[in-house]
């Protein structure tokens, strides 16, 4: 644990050092690239402001994860249970993924308004695909030996799904969730860029327009912190809930 903390600390110091070198090399132009110290000072001085906006973005990300996660899990279960549905809907799913979410962001703001709803929808949309495909993949790859055993034991389609296929697919779902947690902030921030009055994305755009590049970098720092924390918590949670996921059976 201490070893890991040291690793993290060292890589943070290294990043700050490279940043400082870039700052010096660029001729110390604060309006283009503020120094790490300046960014940190701004972050501390504007902690209230940043916290308020981070709260909005954080809520959007979490609600998006919840929404996209639930719909994704439900879709995967539905697709795994009904083969005909799979034949018709999987291509639709893939095509829908080819449309960049950025392109429909203005539409979502138009439909769902300036508030949180459009951002939550963005985050949900962006995580829906990784969750659905990862879980569906897990559900359709149950070890054949387990299915043979269940059949000899007289399991029905539903009890086999409930007691074997779903739990066996949870590690895959976990992997999908980790991808989702990585991309969910993108959805929320893009939503905020397109139209909003609060959130870290809004704050960055606002600060940029006023040449407050230090505030923009501070917001970026907070966003990165938020994303890393979320990823770390997810990783720990998965390790706690699925302790067997690393063990290879079958």
């Amino acid at each position: 644990m201490i070893r890991r903390l040291i690793h993290i600390l060292v890589s943070m110091v290294m990043t700050a050092l490279l940043w400082q070198i870039a700052y010096l090399a660029a001729g110390q132009q604060d309006y283009l690239l503020p120094s790490p110290l300046k960014t940190l000072t701004t972050a501390v001085l504007k902690a209230d402001l940043l916290a308020r906006h981070a709260l909005t973005t954080g809520a959007e990300i979490l609600l998006g994860l919840l929404g996209g996660g639930l719909v994704g899990v439900a879709s995967a279960l539905l697709l795994a249970s009904f083969a005909p549905l799979r034949r018709w809907l999987v291509p639709v799913l893939v095509i829908s993924q080819a449309i960049p979410v950025f392109a429909i962001a203005p539409l979502l703001v138009l439909w769902l308004g300036y508030g949180m709803a459009s951002k939550v929808a963005m985050a949900s949309l962006i995580i829906y695909f990784p969750i659905t495909t990862a879980f569906l993949d897990g559900l359709s790859r149950t070890a054949p030996g387990w299915l043979d055993l269940a059949q000899v034991m007289g399991g029905s389609r539903w009890t086999v799904l409930r007691h074997i296929r779903i739990p066996a697919a949870l590690p895959s779902l976990g992997a999908g969730l980790k991808v989702a947690v990585g991309v969910a902030p993108i959805g929320a921030v893009i939503g905020e860029w397109v139209g909003s009055s609060t959130g870290l994305g809004y704050l960055m755009l606002h600060a940029n327009a006023r040449m407050q590049v230090d505030l923009m970098f501070a917001a970026l720092l907070v966003l990165a912190g938020l994303a890393i924390t979320l990823f770390w918590v997810t990783d720990r949670l998965l390790a706690r809930l699925l302790p067997w996921r690393a063990t290879t059976n079958e």
Partner: peptide
Amino acid sequence: YMAQQDLLLPWLSVLDNITLGARLRR
């Protein structure tokens, strides 16, 4: 049926594994 692989479900305890049949048959 007993196979070469033990086919134990890694997320269940030993006890839950050996009572799997009953659960599959409700």
